[in-house]
C-alpha cells in the first residue's frame, strides 16, 4: 500500500524553542488517525508542515508521493481547517461554504446543508459575531463536506457542547463509512475519540512517543490492585508505567497482555485487575516521556506493536 503521508526527520525550530524534533511518520490511505497530545505538544505545527501551510526547518515531507509546497495537484486533495482558522472579516458562514465549494472537488452541498441544520449554525451572521462553538462548527462543516482525500481536523470541538461534539463524531463515522478517506483527528480529549480511531499517534514535546494500531494498544496495559508485596512479585520482570501506593495497598499499571493462566493466578492471589483506557495509557506514556526516560518509552512502543 502506498502511503498518503511520508515524513523523514522533520524538525521545526523557532528562535528559542523546538516545536518538532525529528518526526518520522508514514500514514496509510483510508484510515482514521488520532493525533494525540497535550496542548503545545506540536500537533498543529506538524499538520501545518504536512499541508505546506508552514515550513519545516529541516527534513522531508511527502504527501501523495510529492512535496505539497505550492503543489496544486497535492493541495487540491487536502483539507486542513486549523483550530484558529481566520476568515475574511466581511464573511458569513454561507460565504465560507460557497468558497469551499469552489476549491474542493468532492464538496457535497446537501451534506453541508444538513450539517448546518444539525449544528444550528446561523448562516447569515457575520463570522466575527459567531461564538467559539459556532466558529468551530464552520470548520467542522468545511472539513466534513469537503470529503477531501486527506482531511485534518484540528481540535475541532473547541467551544462545542457535548451534544454538538457527539453529533460531529456521529457524522464523521457515518460519512467516513460511506466515503472512506484518510482522516487525521487531532485531539487532547482522548476518551471521546478513542473508539473512532484505527491508528494512534501520540506526540509530546515535538517527538512521536506512540505510533500504533488502536486495537493493539487497547488491552496492551493493565492495572493490578492489591497488597503491595503481592503486586510487586506478580509483576516482577514487567515494564511498569505507573505506581500508586496507599497504605499497604498498591495500584500498579504495567504494560503487556495477561494470559488466561496469569489472570487465574492473579485471582488466586487476591489481586484485582482493571483495564487501562487509551487516555490513561497516553497520560502515563506522556508523563514517562517527560521524566526523560525516552529509551524506555521507545522500547514500550516496540512491545506494544508486537
Amino acid at each position: 500500500m502506498t502511503s498518503v503521508i511520508e515524513t523523514h526527520n522533520v524538525i521545526k525550530t523557532y528562535r528559542n524553542s523546538t516545536a518538532l524534533d525529528g518526526v518520522n511518520l508514514s500514514l496509510e490511505p483510508g484510515k482514521i488517525y488520532g493525533l494525540l497530545g497535550r496542548n503545545g505538544a506540536g500537533k498543529t505545527t506538524l499538520m501545518s508542515m504536512l499541508t505546506a501551510q508552514g515550513f519545516q526547518t529541516s527534513g522531508n515531507v511527502r504527501v501523495f508521493g510529492e512535496s505539497p509546497y505550492e503543489n496544486d495537484r497535492v493541495l487540491s486533495r487536502i483539507c486542513f481547517i486549523r483550530e484558529s482558522q481566520k476568515y475574511p472579516d466581511a464573511f458569513t458562514p454561507k460565504h465560507a461554504f460557497r468558497s469551499a465549494a469552489l476549491f474542493f472537488s468532492n464538496w457535497d452541498q446537501a451534506f453541508a446543508d444538513r450539517l448546518v441544520d444539525d449544528f444550528q449554525l446561523p448562516l447569515k451572521r457575520s463570522i466575527k459575531k459567531l461564538s467559539r462553538g459556532q466558529l468551530s462548527a464552520v470548520g467542522v462543516i468545511i472539513g466534513l463536506a469537503s470529503r477531501a482525500e486527506l482531511t485534518f481536523f484540528d481540535e475541532p470541538y473547541l467551544g462545542l457542547d457535548a451534544v454538538a461534539r457527539q453529533l460531529f463524531y456521529d457524522r464523521l463515522v457515518e460519512d467516513y463509512a460511506l466515503h472512506p478517506r484518510t482522516i487525521v483527528l487531532s485531539s487532547h480529549l482522548i476518551d471521546e475519540v478513542a473508539n473512532l480511531l484505527e491508528h494512534v499517534i501520540v506526540i509530546d514535546k515535538g517527538r512521536i512517543i506512540m505510533n500504533d494500531d488502536a486495537e493493539s494498544i487497547r488491552g496492551s496495559a493493565f492495572t493490578v490492585v492489591g497488597s503491595a508485596a503481592v503486586v510487586g512479585s506478580f509483576l516482577s520482570g514487567r515494564e511498569i508505567l505507573h505506581t500508586d501506593n496507599f497504605a499497604s495497598l498498591a495500584s500498579v499499571t504495567a504494560l503487556g497482555v495477561l494470559t488466561p493462566a496469569e489472570k487465574r493466578e492473579a485471582a488466586e492471589l487476591g489481586l484485582e485487575l482493571a483495564p487501562v483506557s487509551l487516555q490513561q495509557l497516553v497520560i502515563r506514556r506522556t508523563l514517562a516521556a517527560s521524566t526523560g526516560d525516552l529509551n524506555a518509552v521507545a522500547n514500550h512502543s516496540l512491545e506494544v506493536s508486537q
Binding site: K31, D170, V173, E174, A177, N195, L196, L197, A214, E215
Partner: peptide, 18 residues
Amino acid sequence: STNEFAAFHRINPATAAK
C-alpha cells in the same frame, strides 16, 4: 452491516468490519 455496527457503537468502521 459493519457500517451500522460502527454508527451504533460510535466506533471505527474498519474495527467493526474486523
